[in-house]
Computed example of a mutant assay.
Amino acid sequence: MTIWRGQQKLILASQSRARKMLLENAGLDVETLPADIDERAVQKKSGLSAPGEIASLLAREKALFISRQRPGRYVVGADQTLALGQRMFSKPAGRAQAAEQLGLLAGKVHELHSAVSVARDGKTLFADVSVARMSMRRLSEGEIDAYLDHAGTAVTTSVGAYQLEGLGVHLFERIEGDHFTILGLPLLSLLAFLRGERLLAV
């Protein structure tokens, strides 16, 4: 049952199934319309290098891009970056790159910066970013290979080559941060904003 009180569905400017699931599980009426922007070009043009700032920029640009196409609609944009010290990671192109990334992350602490933005009629109404610190356990090459065998092509769909809600949970020994941040959407602050807009029944 939906608790969404908007006249039209909330638009999620993303093709992320995890983000859509989070919003639907929270009782929102959602449709997805991925933003067709060149993320790397936007990042390069901005000159930004801090992971949180990059995630915020991309979340904002995605929401604005779709909001200009859908007048009057509330549009949610989201993005997530993974940083190991000063090094940022992208989604691996295939198994070999996934294995390389996991080898670099194993035994270390990396950060996930998850950003969300809401736009309407080409204007940003809300933005937030949250951070989770992920302590990956030490992994042998054999353990990495076994994980990749079982996880399959799913490793190429998320930065860092893991989904914590799936087999990726086996890679970690400690996590600091909320579940929603790890899945790529600061949900609590987003819901608070939507509630302030009188778009939620609860």
Rank of each mutant, 00 (worst) to 15 (best):
Ile3Pro: 01
Arg5Met: 13
Leu12Thr: 06
Leu12Arg: 08
Leu12Met: 09
Leu12Asn: 03
Ala13Met: 08
Gln15Pro: 04
Arg17Gln: 11
Ala18Gly: 13
Arg19Ser: 02
Asn25Leu: 15
Leu28Asp: 13
Leu28Asn: 01
Leu28Val: 02
Leu28Trp: 06
Val30Asn: 05
Glu31Ala: 11
Thr32Trp: 02
Pro34Val: 07
Ala35Phe: 08
Ala35Asn: 10
Ala35Met: 05
Asp36Glu: 14
Gln43Lys: 14
Lys44Ser: 13
Pro51Tyr: 01
Glu53Met: 04
Glu53Thr: 00
Glu53Asp: 09
Ile54Trp: 03
Ile54His: 01
Ile54Phe: 06
Ser56Trp: 00
Ser56Lys: 04
Leu58Lys: 00
Arg60Gly: 08
Lys62Phe: 06
Ile66His: 00
Ile66Trp: 01
Gln69Val: 02
Arg70Gln: 10
Gly72Val: 05
Tyr74Gln: 11
Tyr74Asn: 12
Tyr74Gly: 11
Val75Asp: 07
Gln80Gly: 08
Gln80Tyr: 01
Gln86Thr: 11
Phe89Pro: 03
Phe89Glu: 05
Ser90Met: 10
Lys91Gln: 01
Pro92Phe: 04
Ala98Tyr: 05
Ala99Asp: 01
Gln101Asn: 05
Gly103Thr: 10
Leu104Val: 08
Leu104Phe: 04
Val109Ser: 04
His110Lys: 02
Val116Met: 07
Val118Phe: 01
Ala119Lys: 07
Asp121Trp: 10
Gly122Asp: 10
Gly122Leu: 10
Lys123Asn: 13
Phe126Gln: 02
Phe126Ile: 05
Asp128Val: 06
Val129Ile: 04
Val131Gly: 05
Arg137Pro: 08
Arg138His: 13
Leu139Ile: 02
Leu139Arg: 07
Ser140Asn: 12
Ser140Ile: 09
Glu143Cys: 06
Ala151His: 12
Thr156Asp: 03
Ser158Lys: 00
Ser158Ala: 15
Gly160Asp: 04
Ala161Met: 12
Gln163Ala: 12
Leu164Tyr: 14
Phe172Ala: 02
Phe172Tyr: 04
Glu173Phe: 03
Glu173Arg: 12
Ile175Ser: 04
Asp178Asn: 15
Asp178Met: 12
His179Asn: 15
Ile182Ser: 02
Leu185Asn: 07
Leu200Thr: 09
Ala201Pro: 02
